[in-house]
Amino acid sequence: MVNPQMVMYEEEFNQIQTVVDRLVKEANAKVVFIVDKNGQLISASGDIDNLDTTSLASLTAGNIAATGGIAKLLREQEFAAQFHEGQNANIHIQLVGNRVILVVIFDAKSSLGLVRLRVRKATDELNRIFEALLSKVQEPGSDSPFAEITDEDIDNLFND
């Protein structure tokens, strides 16, 4: 199989959401979200109503991809963490298990030290959850809801 699917189940989703919700509180953050390395948003929490999380997810993944490219050229395995400081907002980006990206957006109510501390703890927990999730996804397609779709279903999507 050329292209393994990433699958998210309810159980793991809830566990991830719990970690993310707690991180918002414990790190005094404005927003916390998790993206996979291809730019798909997995989970988000905090003040996200006025935030374009889809675009943020894609750009964060692009950023991590570019940084990973730089690391490779420097014969570094990966730069696991990044920090960008703005006038009002700061952003901390952490690779988790080289698979997903944990992003924390915070302002003056928090500090880089606190964010890093809390992120480290959350990273361990997330690592465990994603490991479990990956081991669960053995045979993609076997229980995929898409195994039973018909050509007609696909055609219907385009009949507008």
């Binding site: 393994p4 699917q5 990433m6 699958v7 998210m8 189940y9 996979d36 730019g39 898409f146």
Partner: peptide, 15 residues
């Protein structure tokens, strides 16, 4: 790599 999210009932693909 497509991403199937059973929780959000979404399937995401990259072109």
């Amino acid at each position: 790599m497509s991403f199937i999210n059973y929780m959000a009932r979404e399937i995401n693909c990259k072109i």
